[in-house]
Each structure stands twice: as structure tokens, then as C-alpha cells.
Design a protein around this nucleic acid. Structure first.
Length: 508
RNA sequence: GGGGUGUUAGCUCAGCUGGUAGAGCAGCGGACUUUUAAUCCGUUUGUCGUGGGUUCGAUCCCCGCACGCCCUACCA
């Protein structure tokens, strides 16, 4: 490794993290445990989960338990502890939920009971015993054998209020997950969304594929890429901003229906809607067009919501979002007319008028922007935020859609849509441009725009053109923003709430 | 990038237009054989984010910086 490469690596100096008297006390306890044998045993095998126990025996009464004892071995993190002389209670939490343990000195070795008194909240314990109901009717485990499986050295957040500090919730997601049922539910829902989408695609005869994340030429979207360097090849590479051009190469190859659900990377700002790496489900289907895509995308999103929530009628930020009905479809101009009726149709088709109007509203537009781009800017300004219920916007101008097929009736617009829900873009799809010569011309136009200062204009990808020259069947393709969809389905206000480890600045 | 706002004990939070910090939880010690955020008694813990400034004196007022959150911009 050269000196230069070493300089790029993070420093390996060990940072001494916060220590305090609570941790010091626990380290002393661990030291004592170590001196007595194996401190971190791995021979306790639970045979029951809290939720299953409640489901199976929630209705069982003590007479039945006395007639037929139900023995269980449970394990989990101790979340609550109530020590009272010779009989105590503890609540443990496993992946499924919580269950109460009754720990009485009469059922247990005296030494074990004494040791238990000094265990801490957050310790991971294993308990063997039989089920019964306390006199308040709570299903519990009467413990006959109790073991400390993992000593926790750090105190958990306050047991009632939980972790409140948003920064710590993001930086130390493990603590958030321990203490917040809501956070756990969000990520379980995310997993259900992802698998529902995958199942939906596979049921519809799509082939799941994995295309490169390291691209020699960034393409498939208008965005700033992350750059990196491959040492052995001594070449610059880019983290992909979209898989589009590779997926279309596969359509050329004869995989007529493909999808990929994975990460894209864009070197842009962070916000409640943007993380530098985000998950996109992108799919292509030969012999379909943008109208078919809209129907299909709608069904896919509906299936995901039902899988995660059991319904397609959701609540987001206190307001209803109805995914169960057919999604509305509006043209860009139609949407402006609906949400900003003060403009006449003639004005909306007058480039000079739009230019002045956008200037008045403080919107900057490129000097070479055509009518379509100007209409799009006014749409974004006046209509986009109002698209709370699912709405497809169609008729995107060709100049901002370099990979989309132009309309056969109007060469200025493309067969493209974007889907908006809660005022946010959720998906983007179009009939694909499969005319290699037209695509080459569009790439040339992008190169010109790049030279004119448009940093996000696309690069010319000669191999992609070569692929199209072999012939790509007519096709439709679409990308669905998974993080934003999960935000919607889990009623989360920030993208950081649906990404397990969102990007943060290094800790101060 | 611009604007707003926050940072006090391990955690959740108080803190009077300025006099060197408190509560609850957790911890430690004690009582208690059916608790539910157990209860009761006793008790430990702080570079008040950080660096300056004003002041006899700053957690508090002013300025810079770091980090977070919200809005905004680019974008999905």
C-alpha cells in the first residue's frame, strides 16, 4: 500500500468513550462473574417466545395449569425488575415481545436468588419454569432455574420515558430498538414492504437481478455521483446513481422482465426526504408502455401497504391517504390548472409569460429551458405539494427525460409519469427509448448541457448505445423509492426513521 | 448553502432578566413472598456541548465553533 492510500484510511486511534460510575459498578459485577466461571455462557437454548406464550395461554386459567403444567424456557433482555424480599418480578423482552417472570426464593436456589438481586436492567437472562397467572391475572413464568447469559455494561435509557434524544436514536439505533416498540415496528414493516414487493414482482414473472454498484460512467439519472478509485485498475469509478442502463442492457439480452431492489448513491444534500444512499426498486418489462406501468405500479404499492398494514387506506401525518382507489392521472398543465386556476391555458403555453412568472416567484431556470421545462418548474412551484392523494403526473418534456420514449403524437413530450403521494415523488417511470440513434442524439444533447454548466446532465455511454443498436424490444420501466414508500406506510416524518443507520456527521 | 432552534447527572427533565445546580428514574445500602413505571427509608454522581468576551461574579447576557432537530435550497 502506498503512503497516499494509507492517508485515505480512517485513523485507528482508539477513542475512549464515555465511562461513568454506573458502568464502573457493572464492570465490577462482571469481574466477579468472570471469577466464578464462564461469564458469557452459550448453552442456554430457549424453547418459547413471549408472544407465542401469550397467544397460546393468554386464556388458560390456573386450574388448568395445575392439572397440566406447561414448562417453558425463555430468554431475553431484562427490562423491568421489582425486587421484594423473598419474591420478585422481572419482565424480559425477546424478539416477539415481553413476558413477566416470577422469581421466588422458595422455587429457586438461594444463591441464584441472591445473585439475581444484583443483576441489572439490560442484562440478558434465561429462565426455566412453568406458566401460571398472578393474582392480577397476568400470565407469568414461575422460575425454577435462572441464568445470567450476558452482562450488560451500559445502563438503558429511563425505563418509562425511553430514549428521547433523536440524535442518539439515529446514532445508536441498537438502543432505540431495545427501548422503542415503535422503532421496532417501523423496521418490521419495512421488511414486510420489501418482501411484499419482491413477491409481487416474482409473481408477475420478473427476474430479480443484481447489476453493478461501481460504475465506470455514472448514468441512468440526473444526479451528482460519489467518486472512488479502483487501485488495481488505477481508474476512477462512481457509485451508481441508478441501475437503469444496466437493467436495459439485460432487456436487450432477452431478460424481458427484470427488477432490482437495492441501493443508489447520490452526492447531494440531506433532508427529511433524502439520504445519500437510498433504496430503489427499479423494473423493466418488454412489450409494455407507461400506461401499463401506471396500473402495475399502483397494484404493487397497494400490495405493499396491505402486506405491512393490512389495509390500503393509510394515515399519514394525521391525514388519510387512500391507496385503495385508482390513482388520479393529470398532465403537468392539467395539474397547474387544477391547483393554480388563475393561469389561462394560453398563458401556460406562452414560454415568455412563464419565464416572467417564474422570475416573479423567485425560481431560477436555465436560459435554454424550453416550454416544457418552464411548465414543469411552475408545476413544482404551484401543484406538487398539493398532491396528497396518489396522483400520476404525465407528459414530461423530452428535454428533461433523456432516456424516455417521446410521444408518437408530440415529439416535445415523453411517455413518462411521476407518482406523487403526500406531495412527494414516489416513483418515476416511462416507456423506454429503444431507438439507438435517437438515444445517441439525446446523449449528445446532454453533453452540450453539461458543457453549458448543467452539472447533473448525463454522460455519453457508448456501450449502452451499442447495446441498443442490437435492438431492445419496446419496453416500460419504472423506479419506486422504497424509503419514501416506507415512510408513507409507517407514518414516519423523516427518511431517517426508516433507515436503520442513517448518515450523520461524525460525533463531536 | 441560508434561516430558526436546541445541547444541564448514565437516562427523562426543572433551574427565578446573573450569586458556582435540583427532582424522578437508574446505581449503592436497608425493609418487604403477587408486583406492574412496585412501594418505603437512607445515599453516591455534574468540566451545565466547546472556546472567547462582558461582569466583583456567568448554566443564565454577547460572539465564534461543534453536533442535533425543524424549515428552505438541490434532489428521489
Amino acid at each position: 500500500m502506498s503512503v497516499n492510500e494509507q492517508e485515505n484510511l480512517p485513523s485507528q486511534e482508539i477513542v475512549q468513550v464515555d465511562e461513568n460510575h454506573v458502568i464502573a459498578e457493572r464492570r465490577e459485577k462482571l469481574k466477579a462473574i468472570r471469577s466464578q466461571g464462564v461469564a458469557f455462557p452459550n448453552d442456554f437454548k430457549p424453547d418459547a417466545l413471549a408472544a407465542n406464550i401469550h397467544a397460546a395461554h393468554g386464556g388458560t386459567e390456573n386450574e388448568a395449569f395445575e392439572a397440566n403444567a406447561v414448562n417453558v424456557k425463555v430468554a431475553g433482555r431484562m427490562m423491568l425488575k421489582r425486587v421484594m424480599g423473598k419474591a420478585s418480578f422481572a419482565t424480559i423482552q425477546d424478539k416477539s415481545g415481553r413476558i413477566q417472570l416470577f422469581i421466588g426464593s422458595s422455587n429457586l436456589e438461594e444463591a441464584t436468588y441472591e445473585a439475581f438481586k444484583h443483576w441489572d436492567l439490560g442484562d440478558i437472562i434465561g429462565a426455566t419454569g412453568y406458566l401460571f397467572k398472578t393474582k392480577t391475572g397476568e400470565l407469568s413464568v414461575k422460575v425454577t432455574e435462572l441464568r445470567l447469559l450476558t452482562k450488560s455494561l451500559r445502563p438503558l435509557p429511563e425505563k418509562f420515558h425511553g430514549l428521547q434524544d433523536q440524535e442518539v436514536k439515529y446514532r445508536q439505533r441498537y438502543v432505540d430498538l431495545i427501548t422503542s416498540e415503535e422503532a421496532r415496528a417501523t423496521f418490521v414493516a419495512r421488511s414486510k414492504v420489501v418482501s411484499a414487493i419482491r413477491n409481487f414482482m416474482i409473481q408477475n414473472e420478473f427476474l430479480e437481478v443484481e447489476t453493478p454498484m461501481l460504475h465506470p460512467i455514472p448514468g441512468g439519472a440526473a444526479a451528482k455521483p460519489f467518486t472512488t478509485h479502483h487501485n488495481a485498475l488505477d481508474m476512477q469509478m462512481f457509485m451508481r446513481i441508478a441501475p437503469e442502463l444496466y437493467l436495459k442492457r439485460l432487456v436487450v439480452g432477452g431478460f424481458e422482465r427484470v427488477f432490482e431492489m437495492n441501493r443508489n448513491f447520490r452526492n447531494e444534500g440531506l433532508s427529511v426526504r433524502h439520504n445519500p444512499e437510498f433504496t430503489m426498486m427499479e423494473f423493466y418489462a418488454a412489450y409494455t408502455d407507461y400506461r401499463w406501468l401506471m396500473d402495475f405500479t399502483e397494484q404493487c404499492i397497494r400490495a405493499a401497504a396491505i402486506a405491512a398494514r393490512g389495509t390500503a387506506v393509510l394515515q399519514y401525518d394525521g391525514k388519510e391517504v387512500d391507496l385503495s382507489k385508482p390513482f388520479e392521472r393529470l398532465t403537468i398543465v392539467g395539474a397547474i390548472q387544477k391547483y393554480a386556476p388563475e393561469y389561462t391555458l394560453a398563458q401556460l403555453h406562452d414560454a415568455e409569460f412563464l419565464r416572467v412568472e417564474l422570475y416573479k416567484r423567485g425560481i431560477k431556470v436555465f436560459e435554454h429551458a424550453g416550454l416544457g421545462s418552464l411548465q414543469l418548474s411552475l408545476f413544482e412551484e404551484t401543484a406538487e405539494a398539493h398532491l396528497w392523494q396518489p396522483t400520476y403526473i404525465v407528459d414530461y418534456p423530452v428535454e428533461v427525460s433523456p432516456l424516455a420514449r417521446a410521444s408518437d403524437k408530440n415529439p416535445e413530450i415523453t411517455e413518462r409519469f411521476e407518482l406523487f403521494i403526500t406531495g412527494r415523488e414516489m416513483a418515476n417511470g416511462f416507456s423506454e427509448l429503444n431507438d439507438a440513434e435517437d438515444q445517441a442524439a439525446r446523449f449528445h444533447a446532454q453533453m452540450k448541457a453539461k458543457e453549458a454548466g448543467d452539472q447533473e446532465a448525463m454522460f455519453y455511454d457508448a456501450d449502452f448505445i451499442r447495446a441498443l443498436e442490437y435492438g431492445m424490444p419496446p419496453a416500460g420501466g419504472c423506479g419506486i423509492g422504497i424509503d419514501r414508500l416506507v415512510m408513507l406506510i409507517t407514518d414516519s416524518p423523516s427518511i431517517r426513521d426508516v433507515i436503520l443507520f442513517p448518515h450523520m456527521r461524525p460525533e463531536a
